[in-house]
Design a protein around this nucleic acid. Sequence first.
DNA 1: CCTATTTATGTAAGTACTTACATAATACTT
DNA 2: AAGTATTATGTAAGTACTTACATAAATAGG
Lengths: 317, 317
Amino acid sequence: MEFIKELGTLALGSRIKNLSESLMRDMTRVYKEQDIDFEPRWFTFFQLVLQKKEITVTQIARELNQTHPAVVQVINILEKKKLIITKKDKADNRKRLVKLSNKGKQLAEELAPLWEVVQTVTNEILNESAPDLLDKISKVEKTLQHKSTYQRIKEKIIQRTIDEMEFTEYEKKYLKDFQQLNEDWLNSYLELTEYDIKTLSDPYNEIIKKDGNIFLLISEEKVIGTYALQRVSTKVCELSKFTIKKEFRGWKLGERMLKQAIEKAKDLKYESIVLLTHPKLKEATKLYRKTGFEIIPGHPDLTDKTGRCSIYMQLVL
Amino acid sequence: MEFIKELGTLALGSRIKNLSESLMRDMTRVYKEQDIDFEPRWFTFFQLVLQKKEITVTQIARELNQTHPAVVQVINILEKKKLIITKKDKADNRKRLVKLSNKGKQLAEELAPLWEVVQTVTNEILNESAPDLLDKISKVEKTLQHKSTYQRIKEKIIQRTIDEMEFTEYEKKYLKDFQQLNEDWLNSYLELTEYDIKTLSDPYNEIIKKDGNIFLLISEEKVIGTYALQRVSTKVCELSKFTIKKEFRGWKLGERMLKQAIEKAKDLKYESIVLLTHPKLKEATKLYRKTGFEIIPGHPDLTDKTGRCSIYMQLVL
DNA sequence: CCTATTTATGTAAGTACTTACATAATACTT
DNA sequence: AAGTATTATGTAAGTACTTACATAAATAGG
């Protein structure tokens, strides 16, 4: 156990797991030696059903923080042992109502003195070592409820990525990433057309050679966003291939990238930016509008080469 | 979760389990989203092998508080993934030495920044809610190391039994228990003989009708010990069928029962107690000697009806 | 009112453990 | 030195979960 202690907070999970397993194991042994056909993991279940008189599967799962199949399986075992009775809810035929049978109630009564001993012992242990442990655990639970470990880690990772990200112009080595990101995005919202495949498979000839520009948002050598400014005329460019990698969405990166695109367009001496979007892409359209783009009704002369997008937007620089 | 909180210390195990599972689940999700082929439960393993350079299966199991088959299984998985290398220990051919492969070391290096984030986040969570949780857990671990939950519960149960126990004279309703206890005891040390079976199956005719007495140690309606005083002559009785139920051994009940037997023998006007024991029964022989019985060398005229016991002891009252 | 979505449950298959057993190598004992 | 006990590992089978899927009933939204 010494090693795990050395790891400190990094091994918090393992230590907590070990602790709970040791408690469970000990209880299993107690029941076994007392020749009682009962398992520790049924305890909370039993208490819950005892208290609520009648309760459904999902309610149990929710209260005990378990998956419903786990609950169903325990129910089936306990029903076979005739410790509980289940029946359909007449008011809602999907629901299965669970209650203790007489045998179950009797067992609970029999076990009451033992459970009292367990409680005494647990209190004793806590008093000896950490009287407020339960309180501390409550606080951790509350903190995690507010924001989970996952969310916190995710935020930190994304923050790190954002801190280190920068824009760069397209190079050949980014072809795969550029392609992948744009295909992923298109696939999840719309359908890939001939035109898309052609442009994405050869952006150099299709965009850059035609006096367009491609920019990439990069962090830690990974491409996390792309956009292109394709030349329509000397004064007008079209913003396209505007996408952010899935896991980085929701972090306002789109906003930053769009602003950067506008600056780039100015640098390139364009006087206006146009773009084509699709009613399905609500978030994107909202972003464009928020940043100053305006919808121009009716299809204008900018040809929609994919025959797909139906919203035409424009920003005068 | 509200219900589990209501249960307080009784549901300590469940709450701790939920907490650790939530941590593990979140970590699984993080690795998956980062597209890293790594599982949270490997973490302590990896750290350990990384630190110790070379380590055996059992050592790992001990350090990580796991069963050795669990460790073997993880090793097999990681070896298949070429993250570790194992080889036989030349100095001790039973041992399998485990170390990280280059690929494994590389993975550890790659994961280091992520693990740092995890540590930061965990510290953050603890600081927000329970800064000394780890310390508290250490204290609980220490307390349990000193005396486990199991031992504590057991002690309480036995104490309760002892508090309520009393001696009673044999009645027909105790036949089964009397038989069972003595057979169990004999079976675990020696072999049942014809004589034993005969006496145990009909103690009334075999002992009581022959002016002997049988006493039982009873608690909560359960027989936990037996002994008999069989008449050898008006002045001499033989102590036999002296046994304590397995789970109650080690609590000095034998001592109390033996003292009570001596008192009973006095009450019954005997002047000495004799008994036959066996060299195998070291604990019992020690107890008899401690209480005042003395070994009488050479086989005396008290016939050993079982042809088995070879130590003859005597106590003059 | 009808269809789409949500909710409640069940089932199947997979996984990470467990316990119980087996086997071989080493250490102890007389 | 030989037999016995202990230690180190492995394997097999069982169990308590999980995830992924399926289905039916209830509810919501046009």
